[in-house]
Amino acid sequence: MMSTAIEVKNLKTQFGSKIIHQSLNLTINTGEIYGLLGPSGCGKTTLLREMVMLEKYHSGNINILGYDLNNIGSEDAQKLRREWGVLFQAGALFSSLTLRENIALPLVEYTDLSPKMIEEIVRFKINLVGLKHGDANLYPAQISGGMKKKAALARALAMDPKLLFLDEPTSGLDPISARDFDALILELRSLLGLTIVMVSHDLQSIYDTLDRVAIIDHKKIAYEGTLDNIKSVESKFIKTFFGKYNE
């Protein structure tokens, strides 16, 4: 039986007089890897930010893990925030903390684990995302863009969340790391039963990892479903984006 992790209904987003989303609907099932695709500036990042309560939407409904974001209390919101991990497009690591401290922060704040245990967990997460232990004591300013991405993923995974939001996780990674990343995502999903929502422009990664996708075009969902019958859809973006890719 499939249960619903996230449901977006009739969403409308507006910045000033510019409408970004208009009656947008989508459903994300528990345990699936769900992709948000669409041309640049169509509002993928904005939709993600609305889901994690960073941006207010104009009207409509977002329901996440059973919490209705329209009238969520501050305690529930706090509970919900511990259920997810978020990877920002540019990493957004805390620049005053080393990578190790960045990853350890949620553990230090939210658990009463011993420092030794936390250290073990941090070392494991660093390994998991493919960083070297020597890098753990560096500050975000001292590492490369790709390493920031990995460290940010490790931080997002620190609390073993049920829900993972990823904004362009493979952009800025070298091809090998990108494929490793895809493998890691698949593994995490099968081991921990994670639900993953990600924005991506990386075709390889899209075909390798995503179960279902939503294509945002012209403020609405142009297509929602599996990749198998995506080419039958009448959309200029889909035609050019998926057109050339033949397996």
């Binding site: 309560m53 960073l54 706090q78 925030r81 511990r82 920002f88 957004a92 690591l93 620049s95």
Partner: peptide, 17 residues
């Protein structure tokens, strides 16, 4: 201000801090 630009404040909020 710098933390706002680098989205560190947003990251804190999503982590519940």
């Amino acid at each position: 201000g710098a933390m706002k630009i680098t989205e560190e404040l947003d990251a804190m909020r999503t982590m519940g801090f």
